[in-house]
Amino acid sequence: QLPADPAAGPFFEPFRRLPPAMAEAERAALQAQGREAIEREVVPAMRRLRDFVAGEYRAKAPADGSLTHYADGARVYEMLVRQRTTTDLGADAIHAIGLRELDKDRAEMERVMRSTGFSGDFAAFVKWLNTDPRFFVASADELLMRYRAIAKRFDAEMPRLFAELPRGTYGVRGMPEHMGPDAAEFYEGGAVDGSRPGWFNANLVGWRQQPVWGMQTLVAHEAVPGHHLQGARALELDELPEFRREGGGYTAYVEGWALYAETLMREIGAYDDPYSLFGHLQWQAFRAARLVVDTGIHAKGWSRQQAIDFMVERTGVDRAFVEAEVDRYTSDPGQALGYMVGRLKIDELRARAQARLGPKFDLRRFHNALIDHGELPLSTLETLVDEWIVREARR
Rank of each mutant, 00 (worst) to 15 (best):
L2E: 04
P3H: 02
P3S: 08
A4H: 12
D5A: 05
A8Q: 15
G9Y: 04
F11Q: 09
F11R: 06
E13A: 15
L30T: 00
Q31N: 06
Q31R: 11
A32E: 12
E39H: 12
V43Q: 01
P44N: 03
A45G: 05
M46S: 03
L49R: 13
F52Y: 14
R58S: 00
A71K: 13
D72I: 08
D72N: 15
G73E: 04
E78S: 05
L80W: 04
T85S: 03
T87S: 04
D88H: 11
G90Y: 03
A91I: 05
D92T: 06
A93F: 10
H95Q: 10
K104A: 10
K104S: 01
R106T: 02
A107Y: 05
E108G: 07
M109F: 06
M109I: 12
R111S: 01
M113T: 09
R114G: 00
S119T: 15
L144P: 00
R148L: 00
A149M: 02
K152N: 02
P159F: 01
R160S: 12
L161H: 11
A163Y: 10
L165G: 09
R173S: 13
G174W: 09
E177H: 13
M179E: 13
G180M: 06
P181C: 02
A184Y: 10
E185P: 14
E188N: 04
G189P: 00
A191E: 05
F200D: 00
V205T: 14
V205G: 00
V212N: 00
G214T: 15
Q216C: 06
T217Y: 11
L218H: 02
V219I: 14
A220F: 00
H221R: 11
E222R: 06
G226D: 01
H227D: 02
H228L: 03
L229S: 02
R233H: 15
R233K: 13
L235H: 12
D238Q: 15
D238G: 14
E239C: 08
P241M: 08
E242I: 15
R245V: 07
T251R: 14
V254F: 09
G256P: 09
E262V: 12
T263K: 13
L264H: 02
R266H: 12
I268V: 15
L281F: 11
L281D: 04
Q282S: 09
Q284C: 05
Q284T: 14
L291S: 06
D294E: 11
K300I: 11
Q306E: 10
M311Y: 07
R314N: 07
R314H: 07
G316I: 12
D318P: 11
A324N: 12
E325F: 12
D332N: 15
Q335L: 08
L337S: 04
G338Q: 01
K345W: 02
Q354C: 04
L357N: 03
P359Q: 01
K360C: 03
K360T: 00
K360I: 06
D362T: 10
R364I: 11
R365T: 04
A369D: 01
H373L: 04
H373Y: 03
S379N: 03
E382D: 09
W388A: 02
A393S: 14
A393N: 12
